[in-house]
Amino acid sequence: MSLDTETSGEADDEALFTEIDLGWEHLKNRIFLGIIFAASMFGVVMLALLLFDIITDFYVGMTEFNISMGDFLTRDGSRREELSGFRGAIVASIMLMVLTAILSFFVGVGSAIYLEEYAPDNRVTRLIEANLANLAGVPSIVYGLLALAAFVNGIGMGPILLAGAIALALLVMPIIIVSTQEALRAVPDGVRNGSYATGATKWQTIRKVVLPAAMPGIMTGTILALARAIGETAPLIMVGALFTNRMPFGPLDRFSAMPTQIYNWANEPSQHFIHLAATGIVVLLAFMFAMNGIAIYLRNRYETEV
């Protein structure tokens, strides 16, 4: 009886598989792969065309409009196209990144340490973490509007460099918190337990064992977040970082960073300003590539050591 039942079950399985059209299943798989490949290549092709257009305008500016990189990097902005440069915007962007890192790094890392190491695993903590993940995807202009309402107009700070740094710090802080949490989770529990076994307290374990082990991941996430922030235009436009041609000397000065200076030039009717904008984009891309390169180097070095 049991043999007949087993034989009947095998026959039913064979009948089930014979009813499935494997050729159609393979075709659907190939169609799906083709769609996702086409979607990926569309983004790559658009990026390549954009870079080609920028490099072409940059080359034309160097050859036909006689834009000198030396003068371009050592002059401040000007309404006269032949005298306009990028020095003030570069200095302002560097100062912005320093202030943004100071305002966001310690708060972001501290928040991640509390959520990961101290906060209880309950509904409130999970709600906070879910909202942090959602905040990382909020459009950047929203943070610019928040900084405009709360700081520029709310407390009368005005369109100064510190206001722009606050807007960018609000933008990157959720990214730093999430990346720091992931870096802390990547530290093996055996490392913590070994520290506890020697009699170390929880804070001593975090400060001297967990944080040093997670620091490469934390720094990688922070640098990538700052690389995003250095190219953001909308928050800076909202706080009024426009039409300032001089170099800032402190956090209370008005400013125009690299993205906003490029935006100003791109709106000018003169072709010379258009090619100045392309040259500025090349410089901005160089900064972004350098920051991403540093992040990749830190990640690869950490993976090699591990």
Rank of each mutant, 00 (worst) to 15 (best):
I177Y: 09
G85H: 06
H272A: 13
M97I: 07
L242R: 11
F287C: 15
L145C: 10
A38W: 00
I54D: 03
P269N: 02
L171M: 12
D253C: 12
V142M: 05
R185I: 09
G23V: 11
R299D: 08
F65Y: 13
R123H: 09
I262H: 04
E82F: 04
G240W: 08
S140L: 08
N29M: 14
L47P: 02
V191E: 12
A133K: 12
G61M: 04
A112N: 13
L236I: 05
A290S: 15
V191P: 00
N29I: 14
T304I: 11
L236R: 03
I54N: 09
L132F: 07
L22W: 06
S270I: 15
P188D: 06
L242K: 07
D13P: 01
V98H: 00
L99R: 07
M173D: 02
Y143N: 05
V44T: 02
T244R: 10
L162T: 08
A133G: 03
E14K: 14
V282M: 09
L16M: 11
G280C: 07
L51K: 03
D4F: 11
H275V: 13
G221V: 06
P188R: 10
L51N: 10
D189K: 15
M41V: 14
L298M: 09
Y118M: 15
R207T: 10
E303G: 02
T198W: 00
A186Q: 08
K208Q: 00
P139H: 05
T125D: 08
L16W: 10
I141W: 11
V142K: 03
V60M: 00
D71P: 03
I294L: 14
D189L: 13
P216H: 10
F273S: 14
M95P: 08
A229M: 03
L135D: 00
N245D: 13
G88W: 09
Y59C: 11
G217D: 01
F32D: 03
R79W: 02
V187Y: 05
G217M: 02
